[in-house]
Amino acid sequence: MERLYNQLLEDVRFREGMNACMNCGVCTAICPAAEFYNYDPRKIVNEVQKKDDETIEVLLKSDTIWYCGECMSCKTRCPRGNTPGLIIMALRTLSQKTGYFTETEKGRQQFAIKRTIGENIFNYGYCVAAYAVNPDMHPEQGPIWRYIIDHSKEIYERLGVKYDELGEGPLRKIPEDAKEELRNIFEVTGGTDFMEEIEKHSKNKAKELGIQISETGIRNEYFTKVYTENSNRHTLNDQEEL
């Protein structure tokens, strides 16, 4: 197998984001993930810049690389022009290509994202659309969201929305030919293969754990597990309690 570090170098985001880190820790000071998770972007950048494949493999199989929220606040602040967030994105891509993401609780969640956001892109032409946001999966949306879903047509119509119809406007139905172009782009650029890798590795993991998984959709035990499971071993407080 090609060296992991070389595979990272093939990602332009890695080349853009990884210059030379002097370990000042400003990225960690500004990081919303470091505020609550047991997470330190300075440490990750420092480990990656050692170019050691064993160290990188440990990262790819860790919960750690999945704590970042990709807000990119670190990019503004690094005095040496590094972007820990971009390095994280390159590590996450490689973790999914290698299948290592299924080794940890936070990594396995990629399956849930693929089956929700990923499927939305192909089904509707949107990452998110009102009709795909189920109030049962989003209690934090509060009673207004259930109300909106229960009365979608009337509410959106009043605001001038062509709800799921062809033509201009919010929440319009994306024409079939546009969705076809989107699918072709995924096919040509490796996006389809990438999502199939997420599926393949997740199905293997489900089999290994003896948990039921379906071919499509979210009505399966593996989805519920990765979408809701929280071992409570991720935050600074959790670590202290252990």
């Binding site: 990602d11 332009v12 985001r13 990709e70 994105m89 996450r92 891509t93 999914q96 990629q110 994202i113 693929k114 956001i117 990923g118 892109i121 032409g125 949107y126 990452c127 998110v128 062809l166 033509g167 201009e168 319009r172 994306i174 024409p175 030919d177 546009a178 969705k179 989107l182 650029t189 490796g190 996006g191 990438f194 999502m195 997420i198």
Partner: peptide, 19 residues
Amino acid sequence: PSHTTCTGIGYHTDIVPFP
């Protein structure tokens, strides 16, 4: 009307590759 998602949420949840 033919404008679709930019796939940005998929990109920043790391299921959509950069290319």
